[in-house]
């Protein structure tokens, strides 16, 4: 598998650029020194609470917002060095599915117009007839009857709208899709439908994909690898099996423990994190998680733990994570 996307030291700081009088708001470090690779046909899940920078990361990868530091290489080309025209052409290769099934479809356009929009933009529809045929095919692919194409979004339920959004994203046959919490606004029963649909489509079309979620349970079925983010940084990353069976970061463990289980017998014994995520404009010193961490010790407020390898392909940023013994480390890594 070749590398499709190579993220190198990516960071984004939002600064207050308004011309108001008075004190400016402090800059917000939404994403900080994030590095990873996504291979062709691979699904990477990014999980974290709201405000952890996961949506910003998704938008940085698509160059919907510009990075303050680091770079994103797409098929070995540096996106930050591209012209606006080149970026727009690249959008044919990378698409996005949005969280809000209601807001992300324009209310005054028909389903056909919405789905065909990316194709129209890149001149992929030859005639009216061709366009309708392609839209019909896409609707069928996402499990909606083609006769829906002349209706407007308000007639559809959340799950159906999300299917329309997915049809729009895959219409230009992209190599990479960012799905920003595509199921968190849906009923649990509908979540399963959408997750299965995205999995099927990935198998059929072979795109890579970044799946953003706040819930580790949702991601389990989609992801090949999982990255857990906290306050703009990746705190743990590994393959699905590694993350779910042997989490090394206390935050990952807390996230798993917080997911409600449909089993009344398993009620007790959960780790309940105290308080909220601190403001990203005022990140705690040392380890950013220490204010809520059940393991926090003195060193945590002084020194920020680096991402260390705890087993091959599995990294965690915690002072208490045991580093993978050097002796056992394979020469390749």
């Amino acid at each position: 598998m070749s590398v499709l996307i190579d993220v190198q030291g990516l960071g984004k700081t939002f600064t207050d650029t308004t011309m108001r009088l008075g004190p400016k708001r402090p800059p917000v470090r939404a994403v900080e020194s994030v590095s990873f690779q996504i291979h062709q046909g691979e699904a990477l899940a990014v999980v974290g609470e709201s405000g952890c920078g996961k949506s910003t990361l998704g938008r940085l990868l698509l160059h919907l917002i510009e990075a303050s530091e680091g770079r994103v290489m797409f098929e070995n080309r540096d996106m930050s060095a591209m012209s606006r025209h080149e970026i727009r052409q690249l959008r044919q290769r990378m698409q996005m599915v949005f969280q809000d099934p209601f807001g992300s479809l324009s209310p005054r356009r028909t389903v056909a117009d919405i789905i065909a929009e990316p194709m129209d933009s890149f001149g992929l529809t030859k005639s009216r007839k061709d366009r309708r045929e392609k839209v019909a095919e896409l609707l069928d692919l996402v499990g909606l009857p083609p006769s829906y194409m002349d209706r407007r979004p308000r007639q559809f339920s959340g799950g159906q709208r999300q299917r329309i959004g997915i049809a729009r994203a895959i219409s230009v046959d992209p190599a990479f899709i960012v799905a920003d919490e595509p199921v968190s606004a849906l009923d649990v029963s509908i979540q399963a439908q959408i997750i299965n649909l995205m999995q099927d489509l990935q198998e059929k079309r072979g795109f890579s994909f970044l799946f953003i979620a706040h819930d580790l349970a949702v991601v389990r079925h989609v992801a090949d690898r999982v990255a857990v983010m906290y306050l703009g940084r990746i705190v743990e990353m590994g393959t699905k099996a590694q993350i779910y069976s042997s989490p090394h970061h206390p935050y990952t463990e807390a996230l798993m423990s917080a997911a409600p289980r449909p089993d009344p017998a398993a009620r007790s014994n959960r780790i309940i994190l105290e308080g909220d995520v601190p403001s990203p404009s005022n990140v705690p010193s040392g380890c950013p998680f220490r204010t809520r961490c059940p393991l926090a010790a003195e060193i945590c407020s002084v020194e920020r733990p680096p991402l260390i390898e705890v087993e091959p392909g599995h990294t965690a940023a915690c002072h208490f994570a045991t580093p993978y013994p050097i002796a056992q480390r394979s020469p390749a890594t």
Binding site: V188, S189, Q191, A192, N196, V218, R220, H221, P262
Partner: peptide, 23 residues
């Protein structure tokens, strides 16, 4: 169906069970 479609952390199935259609 509702019970089986809840995603779970310990679930190793490749696919989630889904109730087809909507209300």
């Amino acid at each position: 169906g509702l019970l089986r479609s809840v995603p779970s952390l310990t679930d190793t199935r490749k696919r989630l069970y889904q109730i087809p259609g909507s209300v």
